[in-house]
């Protein structure tokens, strides 16, 4: 409690799960959108499997399951523009920022380690 870091935002939502396989990604995004709609400053951090949420050309599931691609397209409308991606995780998927549907900020390991510190609340999904 000696040094109070400069806050980057109110809420950091960490997204660790991919689209379609579970509802965690969608429910995490819903929490982020609602927080933004209430005027909170929200950052998203995509890690591991969660990075696959940003891959282009996603489709609905065979039964019409909506997935999350359409929700991600709405982030800009909600003023959620701080999209952070774990660089190591991105490389692990064999992907580069140009493979993603939205512009992102790729974080190295030292930048990763400060994210929970510079937000007032952290929710992991």
């Amino acid at each position: 409690m000696t040094d109070v870091p400069p806050y980057h935002g109110d809420l950091l939502v960490i997204l660790r799960h991919g689209p379609h396989g579970s509802s965690l990604l969608r429910e995490g995004l819903d929490a982020a959108l609602v927080a933004a709609a209430f005027g909170r400053d929200v950052s998203l951090l995509f890690m591991g499997e969660g990075i696959s949420a940003l891959v282009r050309d996603q489709q609905v599931g065979p039964l019409g399951q909506k997935g999350t691609a359409a929700t991600l397209q709405m982030l800009e409308m909600y003023d959620i523009d701080r999209l952070l991606v774990d660089g190591e995780g991105l490389a692990g998927l064999g992907l580069a920022p140009r493979d993603l549907m939205l512009p992102v900020e790729v974080l190295d390991s030292s930048a990763m380690a400060v994210q929970p510190k510079v937000h007032r609340l952290v929710l992991t999904f």
Partner: peptide, 15 residues
């Protein structure tokens, strides 16, 4: 609604 979660999380000392 989820707005309550946001208010709760940002309004309390520890979530």
């Amino acid at each position: 609604g989820l707005g309550q979660l946001v208010d709760l999380g940002l309004g309390c000392d520890r979530l």
